[in-house]
């Protein structure tokens, strides 16, 4: 029952996105634009080190995603879909996990586009360990969309919602941000050591923000 409801909710979110493509289009467009602006700011950025490349990649991904997520559920709010989900006879945290998973898929799609822009526009070094890099991107996106979805819901009733989501998201995700940059550098230059510490930070962060919504989401969604 719970699993079928979970997949129904995920499919509902994905279908809404497929009809308009709001989150993919806005996140991707903003991400590519940011790479362009960063390239101009760095005078062409033809010879960036792995440290700089990894940092810039995740900064753009975090920024574009946080801005995109502030308005991700506007359509749902307009049509009353969110209220309908709340009326479903299920644990409300399931709604959050479905939203998290669907946002993860959507952001991952836009990240593919951002990655191409990153490699082409910034002339960034291609990761020497692509599988490792793919796992880092997936883990990072999972963490980012988890906390991002939670904070977007949390700030949903605020009149400063658009500015508050990035303002709350950035300080909260600093451990994730540092871990992802270090792991991305390691995937670009495999001779750099210390991956296990950052994998621990990433996993610890994912566990923390997977458990906390389970405890707090029901309270948060009280009408």
């Amino acid at each position: 029952m719970a699993w079928s409801m979970f997949w129904t909710l995920v499919w509902k979110e994905l279908r809404t996105e497929l009809r308009g493509g709001r989150l993919v289009a806005s996140t991707l467009a903003l991400g590519v634009l940011l790479f362009l602006v960063v390239g101009i700011a760095l005078n062409g950025a033809s010879n960036l080190t792995a440290d700089w490349s990894a940092g810039l990649f995740w900064m753009v991904v975090f920024f574009a995603t946080s801005i995109g997520m502030t308005r991700a559920d506007v359509k749902e709010q307009e049509l009353g879909g969110s209220l309908g989900s709340l009326l479903a006879p299920i644990d409300r945290s399931l709604i959050f996990y479905a939203k998290w998973f669907s946002t993860f898929i959507i952001v991952l799609v836009s990240e593919v586009g951002m990655l191409i822009a990153f490699l082409v526009i910034l002339n960034a070094p291609v990761p020497q360990n692509p599988l490792h890099f793919a796992l880092v991107v997936m883990g990072g996106t999972l963490g980012l969309t988890g906390i991002g979805s939670f904070l977007a819901q949390l700030a949903g009733s605020s009149s400063l919602r658009d500015i508050l989501v990035p303002l709350l998201l950035f300080p909260t995700t600093i451990p994730l941000f540092i871990a992802l940059i270090r792991l991305t550098v390691i995937s670009m230059v495999p001779t750099v050591s210390g991956a296990h510490i950052w994998v621990e930070v990433l996993v610890g962060y994912l566990v923390l923000f997977a458990v906390m919504p389970f405890l707090l989401y029901e309270t948060m969604m009280e009408v």
């Binding site: 605020s158 600093i174 451990p175 540092i178 930070v201 923390l208 707090l216 948060m220």
Partner: peptide, 27 residues
């Protein structure tokens, strides 16, 4: 609503502090 929402963020922020500290310390 204000008390509930800000209370939840107060808990999330405080729970995040040790993770932030260790991540930055290892950095």
């Amino acid at each position: 609503r204000r008390a509930r929402i800000s209370g939840i963020f107060g808990i999330v922020a405080f729970a995040d502090v040790p993770v932030i500290h260790f991540a930055v310390e290892w950095w």
